[in-house]
């Protein structure tokens, strides 16, 4: 268990980091050249696949919305920490990680390529979820 303040700060900082990763990918999805990718050409393959969009929405946009919501909730939580806010954080974080599991499954088993930035975002979302869960509920 970690204190509520520490948990909230971790959530805030990691959400901003996740936002940076998602924004970078959003930028890369707009241009046509190769993506800077430490795992070789994985990012290009993932971007070129039909799974780079979810119901017509570019996946990085979903990432941006997710991290923006998480960081905004962290700001709200510094002012009023209620059970509702915590539940909302938990719900959105679970949704985010769940979606991340689905995307990572697609990368490994369907597309057959790993996009470094997507996996990094997935790891960040897992730590965000853990911080939400581990927060001491000192309501």
């Amino acid at each position: 268990m970690i204190s509520s303040e520490l948990s909230n700060r971790i959530i805030f900082i990691l959400s901003l980091l996740g936002l940076a990763v998602a924004s970078f990918l959003f930028y890369e999805y707009q241009i046509s050249g190769s993506i800077v990718c430490p795992t070789g050409q994985g990012c290009d393959i993932v971007r070129a696949s039909p799974y780079s969009r979810f119901f017509g929405i570019s996946i990085p946009i979903l990432g941006i919305v997710f991290y923006l919501t998480m960081s905004a909730l962290a700001v709200v939580r510094t002012q009023l920490f209620s059970f509702k806010i915590h539940t909302l954080q938990l719900l959105i974080a679970v949704l985010g990680v769940g979606f991340g599991i689905y995307l990572t499954y697609l990368e490994i088993f369907v597309i057959g390529a790993i996009c470094f930035w997507c996996v990094l975002s997935f790891i960040i979302s897992i730590i965000v979820l853990l911080s939400v869960i581990l927060a001491r509920k000192n309501l």
Partner: peptide
């Protein structure tokens, strides 16, 4: 609270940049 102000300001700054 001070923390709300600081985090809020950082978030707004990030939004402006974005």
């Amino acid at each position: 609270k001070t923390e709300t102000k600081i985090l809020g300001a950082i978030l707004i700054g990030t939004l402006v940049l974005l």
